[in-house]
């Protein structure tokens, strides 16, 4: 598995896409820093970009990479290598290279500019962790989708629909249910809804970090209390990582039954 991981990692890191991804974050982060001239404000803008783009890019890369390396996978399958190692190796190679491009892309400008205080550093780390988890999760989901569908159009379509659901439709349903059940206490409910969806979870975590919490009023206080306790952090980390571990585990399990 290690060797396959290495191959796929170097294959990916040398490719145009990960360099493009790296440059994109490098340019965005440095231009935000340059234009706002204030690392905490730049972070707030960067957060919006990370929350929207990381899942989307993850979804697209996962599908694309799987379909691109299908021939390679088929070749490997002829060798005496465990199926699990091949698929997980491919996935982790892809995931590490993308995450590294992302982290390098947003860290380098901040290193040159300076973090400007411990608070900003914590906020920055939250964004890095959130972005990495989101990337890994959506890569795994789309990888799985592509594996299950040999029809490329169907695979792409399904992956994008999943992204669309998590990023947009979910929040719509969330908002609707908040209106329908207006008369009930909804704090625990909205907390649960937020924790379940990785995009919402990351968005809320970063938002609470970035001192917008005063705007959130009573709901914000409930959230702050939850995420302020170690129990809350453990639960939210657990759910976030579940979105990586779940699909990865499904990949390793489903690949055995995969027919070519």
């Amino acid at each position: 598995m290690k060797r396959i991981l290495k191959y796929s990692f170097f294959d990916m890191i040398r490719s145009r896409w990960s360099i493009f991804y790296f440059l994109f974050f490098l340019i965005t982060a440095s231009s935000l820093l340059y234009m706002s001239n204030d690392s905490s404000r730049a972070l707030a803008s960067l957060m919006n970009i990370v929350i929207i783009l990381c899942p989307l890019i993850g979804t697209l890369f996962g599908v694309m990479y799987y379909y691109n390396s299908r021939d390679f996978i088929e070749l490997l399958l002829a060798q005496p290598i465990k199926r699990r190692d091949i698929f997980l190796g491919e996935y982790f190679g892809l995931a590490f290279s993308i995450v590294i491009s992302f982290i390098a892309g947003i860290t380098i400008p901040f290193i040159f500019y300076g973090f400007g205080g411990a608070d900003t550093l914590v906020n920055f780390l939250t964004i890095v962790v959130a972005g990495s988890i989101l990337t890994m999760a959506f890569l795994a989901i789309s990888f799985l989708v592509a594996m299950k569908n040999s029809n490329k159009i169907k695979g792409f379509g399904l992956a994008i629909i999943i992204w669309l659901f998590m990023a947009i439709i979910y929040d719509g349903l969330f908002l609707m249910s908040l209106f329908i059940f207006e008369d009930y206490p909804l704090e625990t409910f909205s907390l649960a809804m937020t924790v379940i969806n990785p995009i919402d979870l990351c968005r809320t975590l970063v938002m609470l970090q970035l001192d917008i919490s005063a705007l959130l009023g009573y709901t914000g206080a409930v959230f702050n209390k939850f995420f302020g306790t170690s129990q809350g952090i453990i639960i939210s980390l657990f759910f976030a990582l579940l979105w990586v571990a779940g699909p990865v585990w499904t990949i390793s399990w489903q690949c055995k039954a995969k027919d070519f």
């Binding site: 929350i51 704090e187 919402d200 914000g220």
Partner: peptide, 16 residues
């Protein structure tokens, strides 16, 4: 109208 919906602040859905 519904104060707890502020938790969706900065979500893509809200922007749309």
């Amino acid at each position: 109208k519904s104060e707890s919906s502020i938790i969706l602040l900065r979500s893509l859905f809200v922007d749309l």
